[in-house]
């Protein structure tokens, strides 16, 4: 059997795993079935291209399944950025569930107004929630991390924004400025921490990774990690307060990092 056939067989053998993990990434960002199919096809092509270059690069320093998971994670990120810019669902929206993610996606990725998004979700039968409940959800989502998507062609962008939307944009803009200030301080604090502590802080508060998952991914004991994060959080908050960022502001701006 030729080497190419070996790699082809290897890929076929791991296809169920690959599809399962790819679906996990799609589900995490609540992609709809068409978007999920789109990513699946794209990822399969990337795995095959250049005569299975992804598999050829593998040197056996980790489990192949772990390696493939990282590869797919990067592919998913690249795919998402190429399609929709830097937008991704906030951890807070993920925490609140499908309705929140769908709402956030329509408004911040697809650029519908909030009223249009609410109407769309209800008219498509994608939610059982009332208008009032959907507005309440939207208001509970953090403004600071709402990425500004790269427009992808014609679409609802052309729709004129309402006065309320304009006000919201202004508020968002203020929030973004404040968040940017927090992030600068955060970067400085993290820079002064040992590398492992810095990674823990960023995984926990920027990526919204659970303590259990941080422990698993960095091969750390879970119970002492809670205390460690507690100490890091106190230090972070004290430095932020010294910069004039109140605890309340901190909580609001980082609400999306809650699990």
């Amino acid at each position: 059997m030729s080497q190419s056939q070996d790699y082809e067989a290897l890929l076929v053998q791991h296809l169920p795993f690959i599809e399962r993990m790819a679906a996990t990434f799609c589900q995490r960002d609540r992609l709809d079935p068409d978007e999920t199919d789109d990513f699946m096809s794209w990822a399969r092509e990337r795995l095959i291209e250049d005569d299975y270059a992804v598999l050829r690069k593998f040197r056996g320093e980790s489990l192949l399944t772990t390696y493939l998971t990282v590869v797919l994670s990067r592919m998913f990120r690249d795919h998402r950025v190429a399609r929709w810019g830097r937008w991704r669902p906030s951890a807070e929206a993920r925490r609140q569930g499908d309705d929140a993610v769908a709402l956030e996606r329509l408004v911040y990725r697809d650029r519908y107004t909030v009223a249009q998004a609410v109407e769309l979700l209800r008219s498509r039968g994608e939610t059982l929630l009332s208008e009032r409940e959907l507005y309440a959800i939207f208001d509970s989502l953090p403004a600071g991390t709402r990425g500004r998507p790269t427009p992808a062609g014609e679409g609802p962008l052309a729709t004129a924004a309402s006065i309320e939307e304009t006000d919201r944009e202004l508020l968002d803009s203020e929030s973004d400025t404040q968040r940017s200030q927090v992030l600068k301080v955060l970067e400085r604090v993290v820079a002064g921490l040992p590398a492992e502590d810095g990674t823990i802080v960023r995984m926990r508060f920027l990526e919204g990774t659970s303590v259990a998952d941080i422990a698993r991914s960095l091969n750390l004991e879970q119970k002492p990690l809670y205390r460690r994060i507690e100490r890091l959080l106190l230090r972070l908050r004290s430095e932020l307060e010294a910069e004039g960022i109140s605890r309340q502001d901190f909580l609001e701006l980082f609400a999306e990092s809650e699990n």
């Binding site: 993990m21 996990t24 990434f25 995490r28 772990t66 998971t69 990282v70 797919l72 994670s73 990067r74 998913f76 990120r77 970067e187 993290v190 820079a191 921490l193 590398a195 810095g198 990674t199 960023r202 995984m203 920027l206 990526e207 990774t209 659970s210 259990a212 998952d213 941080i214 698993r216 991914s217």
Partner: peptide, 20 residues
């Protein structure tokens, strides 16, 4: 990972997926 947002995102998402 302590300074690179993109790498952190890839790593954290892979960690969460593997954990699940």
């Amino acid at each position: 990972l302590a300074v690179d947002d993109d790498e952190l995102e890839v790593f954290a998402a892979a960690a969460a997926a593997l954990s699940l």
